[in-house]
């Protein structure tokens, strides 16, 4: 459910007048009559109007703040999809071929039923995926117990332990319906990449100079390399976020968290040492004293 305060761009503490003002401004901007060529405007306008309905009056706002509109919105979303299916909807009609309507209703109303035959056994398979394959998705072919090949489309963002079901690809030893094939996913670890929820954490070694002055560094991600801006004065352990380069879920896309590791040169340069010694005397710098 979208937050009506966010849709209208007001704070949750905003007054009714402020909400009304924000609504009027946005409604004017997105009104379909003013932008007939923009396909997305109508939906946006509806969204703004609905948000205002939710928090535009004291009564509605109290209900929303107490969490009541969630249910209302859910019903609305379910019925929105339902409404699209009531006039030859593609999704609903995809079932027409699976069971003929007449036959189904005859069975339903005349009590006709068939004796069920014992189903054949299911078979389980284990599929190892690299982290890249799991995050980005992949298509693989596995050879089933009956020698046939099965093309398996792995969706992006799959996690270890996910079980994919392939109906009818199990055993077919007896005359009953065939069993199912189940593929259990195992995502192999990748050195240097730690998955934490929807985020992926990596370490980035940088030089003393880069830490001090800042830099633009090319960082590998599972989606390809990106240039990361390192701000000046970062320390080992500082974390920088690259949005949209983590795990894809149904609600968001995680980030890659880049953990900085400052690496000093193996050999000290006498000139640098001299400069540091001179600097050290001049400035009061004690990281253990910082709060």
């Amino acid at each position: 459910m979208k937050n009506p305060y966010k849709i209208l761009g007001v704070k949750e503490t905003a007054s009714l007048d402020e909400i009304k003002k924000a609504y009027r401004t946005l409604a004017k901007k997105h009104h379909p009559d003013l932008n007939p060529s923009n396909k997305t405007n109508e939906a946006k306008f509806k969204e703004i109007s609905h948000a205002y309905d939710q928090i535009g009056t004291n009564e509605a706002r109290t209900k929303f703040d107490q969490g009541e509109p969630g249910e209302e919105n859910s019903k609305q979303q379910w019925s929105s999809f339902y409404n699209t299916q009531q006039n030859a909807g593609r999704y609903a009609n995809s079932y027409a071929d699976q069971f003929g309507d007449d036959e189904f209703f005859e069975n339903l109303f005349h009590g006709a039923h068939q004796k069920r035959r014992a189903q054949n056994q299911d078979i389980n398979y284990l599929m190892d995926l690299t982290l890249e394959e799991a995050v980005l998705g992949v298509e693989k072919v596995i050879t089933l117990a009956n020698g046939k090949n099965l093309k398996v489309k792995i969706p992006p963002g799959i996690t270890s332990g996910t079980k994919l079901r392939f109906a009818g690809h199990g055993l077919t030893e007896n005359s009953g319906p065939p069993g199912n094939a189940y593929i259990m996913i195992n995502v192999l670890p990748k050195a240097g990449y730690i998955v934490q929820g929807h985020d992926i954490e990596t370490e980035l070694p940088i030089s003393f100079m880069e830490a001090l002055l800042g830099a633009e560094i090319e960082v590998p991600t599972l989606y390809g390399s990106v240039n990361l801006q390192i701000p000046p004065n970062v320390s080992t352990g500082s974390k920088l976020r690259i949005k949209g380069k983590g795990i894809i879920t149904n609600t968001d896309v995680g980030s890659q968290i880049v953990k900085i590791k400052v690496v000093l040169p193996k050999k000290s340069d006498p000139e640098l040492l001299k400069a540091i010694k001179s600097w050290n005397g001049k400035y009061d710098y004690n990281p253990r004293g910082e709060k």
Binding site: Y82, Q85, Q86, Y91, A92, N93, Y95, A96, F104, F105
Partner: peptide
Amino acid sequence: DQLNHLHLSFKNN
């Protein structure tokens, strides 16, 4: 999808 289809079929038939 099945429910929507059945509902539609029921209405039509």
